[in-house]
Amino acid sequence: MNENYYWIEEKDGVVTVGLTDEGRNELGNITFVSLPKVGDSLTKTDVLVNVEADKAVSDIPSPVEGTVIAINEDAVDDPSVLNNSDRTSSWVARIEK
C-alpha cells in the first residue's frame, strides 16, 4: 500500500498510525482487521496491519521501526471504526521508536 494511504503523528517518540481518506477510499468499506500485538517489535518491512475491505485485502507495512505500545482495541471488536476520518477513533496502532 502506498505511503499516501496512511497518516502518522509523532509526539515524544511515540508514533500513532492510521489510514488516510485516500487509503480508505482505495480499500472500500473495512470489514476485518488484524493488528499487531502490544510488545511486538517492528521494522519498516514488517506488516503493521492486515485489512480486508470491499475492494481489496491489503498488508500495510509499518512506517517506522519500534515497539507496539498500543493498538486500537475498538477496531479489533468493530473494524468499521477504521472507516471514520476522525483520527481520535480511527487510529490503528501506537509505536514507540
Rank of each mutant, 00 (worst) to 15 (best):
1 M>A: 15
1 M>I: 14
2 N>E: 15
2 N>G: 15
2 N>M: 10
3 E>C: 10
3 E>H: 12
3 E>T: 15
6 Y>L: 15
7 W>C: 06
8 I>T: 15
9 E>C: 07
10 E>G: 01
10 E>H: 02
11 K>C: 03
11 K>Y: 00
12 D>I: 00
13 G>Y: 01
14 V>S: 02
14 V>E: 09
15 V>I: 13
16 T>I: 08
18 G>F: 00
18 G>W: 00
19 L>C: 08
19 L>A: 08
19 L>K: 04
22 E>D: 11
24 R>L: 04
24 R>D: 02
26 E>Q: 14
27 L>I: 09
27 L>G: 06
28 G>W: 07
28 G>R: 04
29 N>G: 09
30 I>F: 01
31 T>W: 00
32 F>V: 08
33 V>P: 08
35 L>Y: 04
37 K>G: 09
38 V>R: 02
38 V>G: 01
39 G>Y: 00
42 L>G: 10
44 K>C: 10
45 T>Q: 14
46 D>I: 11
46 D>C: 12
47 V>G: 07
48 L>A: 11
49 V>A: 15
49 V>N: 04
51 V>W: 06
51 V>S: 07
52 E>V: 11
52 E>W: 01
53 A>D: 05
54 D>G: 13
55 K>G: 12
57 V>L: 14
57 V>W: 04
57 V>P: 07
59 D>K: 14
59 D>C: 12
62 S>E: 01
62 S>N: 03
62 S>Q: 05
62 S>R: 03
63 P>Q: 06
63 P>D: 07
64 V>G: 06
64 V>R: 07
65 E>P: 03
68 V>K: 07
68 V>R: 03
69 I>N: 04
69 I>R: 01
70 A>Q: 10
71 I>N: 03
72 N>I: 03
73 E>F: 00
76 V>N: 01
76 V>M: 03
77 D>I: 05
78 D>Q: 09
79 P>M: 06
82 L>H: 10
83 N>K: 08
84 N>A: 04
85 S>Q: 10
85 S>D: 12
86 D>L: 00
87 R>N: 09
88 T>C: 02
89 S>Y: 02
90 S>K: 04
91 W>A: 00
92 V>K: 03
92 V>P: 10
93 A>T: 14
93 A>P: 13
97 K>H: 14
